[in-house]
Design a protein around this nucleic acid. Sequence first.
DNA 1: ATGGCTGGTAGAACCAGA
Length: 263
Amino acid sequence: MARLSIASWNINSVRARIGIVERFLRQEAPDILCLQETKVVDRDFPHAMFEELGYVHRMTNGQPMHHGVAILSKVPLREDRRHDWQDNGEARHLGVRLPNGILLENVYVPAGGDIPDPIANPKFGQKLRYYDRMTDWSAGLREPTVLVGDMNIAPLECDVWNHKALLDVVSHTPVEVAKMNDLMASHGWVDIGRTFFPAPQRHYTWWSYRAADWKASDRGRRLDHVWASPKLAQHAVGYRVVEPARSWEKPSDHIPMIVEFDW
DNA sequence: ATGGCTGGTAGAACCAGA
């Protein structure tokens, strides 16, 4: 049995936060780190720190200004594919095959704008269609797969600080939750986060920058997720988040998650 | 209490995030 740890973090600019990414890697030393919202084109990706810390296998899928994902790894990676589930050229996915043959999918789902109405707000419709296309892909998936990333939906009542107050807020609307449930059912995905922190436990991964004191108000949401194929999920031996990272210097508004497998 | 913030990029009374 070999142990492998995989971290995922929406970093909100990898260049602006290279210092806390290094702090995280020195402290937690995951084998693989999946980043979302890198906000950097591939030729400007800050490779040096990762190289120094032994993350010598790196794949990036960036674009100017927004979005962007990357996988930094101590173990070899083979690129599998880059899905464009919006079909608009945005850099939101990177899939790789690990040395043991397992697939790792790093996803950054669109936020969906402010208004939860696809007519008034086309971005919301795009988000729903993104889930539909992911579901089409997932339904045909036959291999053991780990899916991590910023799914931009907090599905359970206990995934938000106030269920009733957020029912009309993009990320927690019933139509979004239904789309996420369809996606989960299409492959039998196991929600590793809730396997290790069962509902109704408090478990958040994001807090707005706009709160005067994120910890005191604690108006969090669980937007970031780790999923595994049903049989693979039985090999998950650990899952944790690093909540103190939300208070590190110049933090991301998301915190990192780490999942460990024995296989 | 949907924004009181933040980053990228342009050089803005900008955009996007969620």
